[in-house]
Amino acid sequence: MKTSDFYYDLPERLIAQVPTKDRLASRLLVLDKKTGRTIDGHFPDIKKYLRKGDVLVINNTRVIPARLLGVRSDTQSPVELLLLKRIDDNHWETLARPGKKVREGKRMTFIPGELEAECEQVLESGNRIIRFEFNGVWEEVLDKAGTIPLPPYIHEKLDDPERYQTVYSKDAGSAAAPTAGLHFTKELLAELQDMGVEIAELTLHVGLGTFRPVKAETIEDHEMHSEWYDFPKEASDIIRKARSEGRRIISVGTTSTRTLETVASNDPDMKPASGYTQIFIYPGYEFKCVNSLITNFHLPESTLIMLVSALAGRENVLNAYKHAVEEEYRFFSFGDAMFITDLEN
């Protein structure tokens, strides 16, 4: 299958640069994955499509201030690090800019006497293994030195960093937000629970690889990035019981989907598990756990639009996206939402 099969035209003006003032103000496009039918609405309408016994699976990861701006210790010239993956207490895999200036042995300063670093290894991918030297508690030092990294297509300043966090975020470790969850408020989640919808929490720490374009001509040749996940006992118990009773498993976001499908692929019983996943879901994949998906609109030719197409069919998805463009929905991280489901079941 060609990467170009997942291209669509998107006017730049439809890329949302800032979040809505009210999380519930986003629009909602409902897509019937069986027929391709679409229904326009607003996000609170999600209550119409959920019912007692459904399990809503959320990713409780929290975005860390993973963007560090400092200077090279020898020349005092600017340097930027983006934290991608924590290796141990002192070491991170990072993306460095300008990369050609951050060679092995090069030292950097972010807060003099409080946070310094040295490049220990340049990986084949171009990423760097950085050893950090810091005084105090790492999380507190990082909060002081770092900023929240926004996706590369967002050029506006974010006034309130909490708008790039879900209201249920708590497990710090992501370089990007699980943006489908940005539409929920605590009040809406409480309403859904009062309706009898169960909520299961898992964790997948989102890496910046989620924004990496697919450069391979055929999608099968793309090398998927890896991300760390945790599928705890509480979520396992809820989902195993719901599956045994034939109830719907509704994933909030592609990150929750990737976690659930990783666990189900490794263990049909879906017992608690954690580790790294490189699962790449594209058309032809048979879903083992997820029935329905709440998600945002994704970049053309991205692994995320491929995942959505695996669930709803490429033609259905591209037709829905064409409709969303014509109706001027807002796209990407701060944009509007879709609910992909079988409206007959």
Rank of each mutant, 00 (worst) to 15 (best):
P65Q: 12
L50G: 06
A117E: 01
K85R: 14
I111E: 00
L84T: 00
D54K: 06
E93L: 15
K100F: 10
L115D: 00
P65A: 13
L81S: 02
A117S: 03
G113T: 01
R72F: 14
R51I: 15
R97S: 09
R97F: 06
R107C: 08
N60V: 09
P112D: 03
D74L: 06
N59P: 15
L68R: 02
W92L: 06
M108W: 01
T75D: 12
P65L: 12
L83H: 01
R86H: 04
I111R: 00
V57H: 09
E104A: 14
E114G: 05
L84S: 04
N90P: 08
K100S: 14
N90H: 15
V63T: 04
L69S: 10
V79F: 02
K101Y: 10
H91A: 06
P78A: 10
K101W: 11
D74R: 04
W92F: 10
L50M: 09
R97G: 05
V102S: 13
R72L: 13
A117W: 00
P65K: 13
L56D: 11
S77I: 07
A66D: 10
R51F: 13
A96C: 07
D74H: 03
P65F: 13
S73Q: 07
N90G: 07
E114Q: 09
K101H: 08
G70V: 01
V102Q: 08
L83N: 02
P65Y: 08
V63I: 09
R72V: 11
L69E: 11
V55G: 12
K52F: 09
D89S: 15
R72D: 10
E114P: 05
R62H: 09
R72E: 11
L50H: 04
I87T: 04
T75H: 03
P98I: 02
V79M: 07
G53T: 07
A117M: 02
P98G: 04
L68G: 06
E116S: 15
E116P: 10
R97H: 07
V102G: 10
G105K: 03
K101E: 14
P65R: 12
E80V: 04
P98V: 03
E80H: 02
E104R: 15
E80K: 03
P65I: 11
T109H: 00
L68K: 02
G105S: 05
R62M: 13
A117D: 01
S73T: 12
I64S: 07
A96F: 02
L69V: 11
